[in-house]
Simulated assay, not measured.
Amino acid sequence: MTPDVRHLLPSDEPVRLIDSGGSSVGDPSHTLPEPAALLRAYGALVIARRLNDQASALVRQGRLAVYPSSHGQEACQVAAAQALDDDDWMFPTYRDTAAIVARGVDPVEALVLLKGDWHSGYDPYQYRVAPQATPLATQLLHAVGVAHAARLRSEPTVVLAMCGDGATSEGDFHEALNFAAVFGAPVVFFVQNNEYAISVPLARQSVAPSLAHKGVGYGVPGERVDGNDVAAVLSVLSTAVSRARSGDGPQLVEAHTYRIQAHTNADDASRYRPDDEVKPWIERDPLVRLDGYLRHAGALDDDGAAAYAEQAERLAEHIRDGVGRDVEPRPEDLFDHVYARRTPQLEEQAAMLADELAREESDV
């Protein structure tokens, strides 16, 4: 007898609650978040956009080595952080700096890794945010491990595992889904489908009806959402997190969005996509969309928008001051944090380096 898998299938069309013009779109299966939650999301969107612009400027100034912008994808970033409780965990990718900041991490600490410093900048345990992962999909297995451990300890923790469409072509993605499904791990896999894995378009990666359909093969329910509609993303993710927390096992959410800017500052997107492909997505800007809705609803006016913009400018100033500050390197740091306790070999090497540095100072 063929098992009934209809409950695993995503919706035929991505869930949408606010259209590109800022008008509410009725959806009986999903509830529009309360105005207070949307105002909170709006403030975070303004900050995320300013963060992306400021970080990109710091790259041009030589203060950051690289920055993978999430410009145009900020709805996904903000909703990812807002859907989680304080005790939940987030496992981000290299493009999820805005989500990390929305989770409460100091943006200067979040950008340290991209500056080329020796560590990820922030304490993962303090914020329940894992270090940003550059290798595709490797963090998904780590996320499932944390979720499985939480389940074994009977903790109410849910783990949000973030990735892009390119990561779904990696073996780690499939292994993570399979393990999570078999063991009922409370993890939400959140795929930000921005149409490109660097220069490879989605059509060259997969011929599945959608990336959310990939969960069916592992017994993981999937859902699709308009990734530029922060209200819809917040609603869908909140539902997925609630289901995982209640014991329904892993969930898979695919957000349909677009990478407006280049992969990084080292990329020339004009070599593999035409400008007329980008233009329609600019018109679906998540910030403009939510701004229009809140103004129509009477929840936002010019003074309110200006206050959010001023808050974002203060954050940008903080980023400039923090990232622009030169750091005096300590050679001794080479031997710290390698092991919880230094091995005899490390102690010997540290002593040799200290002796060499002392000799150099005496020769000056």
Rank of each mutant, 00 (worst) to 15 (best):
D275W: 08
S56F: 08
S270A: 14
D303W: 00
D106C: 08
V112H: 14
D123N: 05
S242G: 14
A167L: 07
A161R: 04
H296S: 13
E347Q: 13
R271Y: 08
H318V: 08
D85L: 13
H71K: 15
D268Y: 09
P201M: 07
G145F: 00
Y308N: 11
P286G: 05
H296R: 12
I47K: 15
A307I: 05
V15C: 06
R224I: 08
L51V: 07
Y42V: 02
H337A: 14
V327N: 10
H148K: 13
R49K: 14
P344S: 11
F183N: 12
Q82H: 12
R284Y: 11
M90Y: 02
L211S: 03
H119T: 13
A83Y: 00
D27G: 08
A240Q: 02
G164A: 03
W89L: 03
D363Y: 12
L237T: 01
D248H: 15
S23P: 13
A266I: 11
A55W: 03
P280I: 10
L32R: 04
T134V: 15
D226G: 06
E277C: 11
A48G: 12
A57F: 10
E109L: 15
V146T: 12
V338Q: 12
A316W: 02
G171T: 08
L38S: 03
V129G: 00
L294D: 01
G298H: 03
L160I: 07
L202E: 03
W281L: 07
L290I: 07
R103S: 01
P135T: 07
A83H: 02
D326N: 11
E317D: 15
S199N: 11
H174M: 04
E313P: 10
P124T: 01
R245E: 08
A181N: 09
D165C: 07
G304Q: 05
H30N: 07
S20L: 15
V323H: 06
E347R: 10
V144F: 05
A80G: 02
P209K: 09
T31L: 13
F173M: 10
P286V: 01
E195Y: 12
Y125R: 10
L32Q: 03
G219V: 06
R259H: 04
R342C: 13
R330L: 14
H119M: 13
D333M: 12
L51F: 10
L58P: 00
A350Q: 11
G22A: 07
V15Q: 05
H30E: 07
R325F: 00
P33W: 01
G292T: 03
G43Y: 04
Q349G: 14
A80L: 03
A262R: 01
L152D: 09
Q251I: 08
L353N: 07
Q205C: 06
W281F: 09
V182D: 09
G62Y: 06
S238W: 08
L294I: 01
V225W: 02
G324R: 10
A57Y: 07
Q251T: 11
P124Y: 00
A255Y: 00
V187E: 01
N228E: 09
R151D: 06
R40A: 15
P92K: 02
K279D: 15
A147T: 03
W281E: 06
D336T: 13
A181I: 09
G21L: 10
E34P: 12
T97P: 10
Y196G: 02
V364H: 15
L45V: 05
G184C: 10
V182F: 08
V364A: 15
A41D: 01
R243Y: 14
V288H: 14
P10L: 05
L141K: 08
E170I: 09
I18C: 04
A44Y: 04
